[in-house]
Design a protein around this nucleic acid. Structure first.
Lengths: 340, 340
DNA sequence: ATGAAAGCGCTAACAG
DNA sequence: CTGTTAGCGCTTTCAT
């Protein structure tokens, strides 16, 4: 096993094993017809040479990379991480590998990323959300591979969709709050535009409040997404100072909701008695903290699972590529201790 | 821009632009000498055809992929996510793209992953931790690319190292606790072996306790890594039932420490007065929760930054590949409200 | 079950 | 600044 000079190729392995390169190639595939002993001899020769299969060359010749490109807003978000993990596990069963990139909640960044990813010739591309630059859309449209938009229900989808309605989910939480007797309800979320899911959640809040004939103007802008725990805490501080008689607040995520909760704790404001708090995303923290957080389970893992299954069906031809799938997930309201 | 038939290649673009394929190739590189107008004409022709550059072919011919392979134990961990993000941002400045895989804290899984990643011919490979299967080590040793082990200080490193001493960090926390007057101190961590960093932290705890002549047997095994908030809470319950007179506990991470804190809150045990709690990793939650958590900042982001800079220097030949780097990071003890 | 020939789409190397 | 030639390492295709 030499560590200098050029790395061994299939031809080197073939020579050593006394077979043709084609036989070496077959020995490295699991489903090809090849004699057991021949395969073992080839693999032994490969091992002795320290041969490592070159996917790049195989990809070029076979025109298949077994890559699936995935873009997420942030690599540092447990919800998206859950989706990616489920996706990764589902896809790995078919030998598909994820090529992951993050956009920092920026569609310009997403556009660059999409272009970069498509150059690697993935078998499919999964993007988070339905908002893209014009050129980003165009790139996805022209890609001759399955395109799946997730975590959202775009009105004008590019291809397939695996998502849920962010607005509708929050509407249901507002309904629950109103039935529980809350009237002066606020919303803590990020600045508009960048995070479309967050924007949708706020829109759902406003629509539901208006529907109930309640004041929908208690909106705290927490800064640029993603909204951290710290920003949630700061926002709660501003809420208390601006709208002191607020009875309940819905936060754009469990992380900001937890931050808001801690600010109440620091100020001696009882949750839920003096202030009820709702979050979004069913992060682990929401089920653990004291009091635990009422939240919305968006089924991040299921999004990944369904997306993986969809991609596999499409690649296997078990599903018609021409008929875009629209897999709608119904989020669950989880009522816990932070509301009464 | 046709969407059926075979995708356009450089030859198609060249024909349309009235130049040779080589000129098209140059038009797509930024640093090559080519006439401004020619480049624009080529890029226009490419756009009109909906041409997308094929990295796979370029990679094979140039024998450069611009991939950097990275393995982390879990994709769902804010510490590793911080490292990956910093790494990703540092590397993208040189056009390097991360190929990420997760091992689920399992060296057998890591071995499979390493093999799969090396087949993609990355320019360098970054692994988390210094424990690998024999074959995993061999694969890394024979890879003719820079190997960087992170988040640890292996005694017998394969190549470069960017990490810190997990044991030493916890030793310092124990020292701090002892100086503060705590004597009956416990440790909550995962089952041995799988997570070597966690195991090192426990070893550091035991060594420090012994050094101070204190009882080092209050060890709560929280289950298989990674230890969740929930498992931290459960472990605190078991600790209180098993060693009721414990004054302080050190947890393998801030997540389990927070879980432990919530269990105290549910049981009406005052933190830090009746029970002091220390965590590890300086997760955001530790700085936000009430009381905030004493912890150890392992500088996850700096690990990523230093690793990215190291890789770039190695690939640019600004640093001798033959001289393995050993970049040691000194974690910081952050004393907060959960200890007195 | 195995082999021979050809070529995937791009760029290194050289020439002009 | 631009073009020609050859070939990266594998697999498709067709034989046997």
């Amino acid at each position: 096993m030499q560590t200098t000079g050029k790395p061994p190729t299939m031809a080197d392995v073939a020579r050593r094993a006394g077979v043709s390169p084609m036989t070496v190639s077959r020995a490295f595939k699991s489903d090809t017809s090849i004699n057991r002993d021949t395969r073992e001899a080839v693999l032994r020769a490969a091992d002795e040479l320290g041969y490592v299969f070159d996917s790049t060359a195989a990809n070029l010749r076979s025109q298949r990379t077994d890559f699936v490109a995935v873009t997420i807003p942030s690599i540092n978000n447990a919800n998206f991480a859950d989706t990616v993990r489920a996706l990764s596990e589902g896809l790995s069963q078919r030998g598909l590998q994820i090529l992951l990139g993050h956009t920092n909640y920026d569609t310009r960044e997403e556009e660059r990323l999409i272009e970069q990813l498509l150059r690697r010739r993935p078998e499919a591309i999964v993007v988070t959300g339905g908002k893209h630059t014009a050129r980003g859309r165009q790139l996805l449209n022209n890609a001759r591979i399955p395109v799946i938009e997730t975590w959202d229900l775009p009105e004008d989808p590019i291809g397939h969709v695996v998502g849920f309605s962010n607005a509708q989910s929050v509407r249901e939480m507002v309904d629950h709050f109103v039935v529980a007797g809350y009237e002066r309800i606020a919303f803590i979320g990020g600045d508009a535009d960048r995070d479309t899911r967050g924007t949708d959640r706020r829109a759902g809040f406003i629509a539901a409040m208006n529907h109930h004939g309640l004041d929908a103007t208690r909106l705290i802008a927490a800064g640029a997404p993603p909204i951290s725990m710290r920003e949630g805490a700061n926002s709660m501080g501003r809420l208390l100072e601006t709208y002191g008689d607020t009875q309940a607040v819905i936060c754009v995520s469990d992380l900001s909701a937890f931050g808001a909760l801690t600010e109440c704790q620091r100020r001696g404001i009882a949750v839920p008695d003096q202030m009820a708090i709702g979050g979004f995303g069913n992060y682990e923290i929401g089920g653990i903290c004291v009091p635990s957080l009422t939240t919305i389970n968006a089924f991040a893992r299921e999004i990944g699972e369904k997306t993986a299954a969809l991609i596999i069906d499409l690649l296997d031809g078990k599903r018609e590529a021409g008929e875009p799938a629209r897999l709608v997930i119904k989020p669950d309201l989880i009522v816990r201790e932070s509301t009464r």
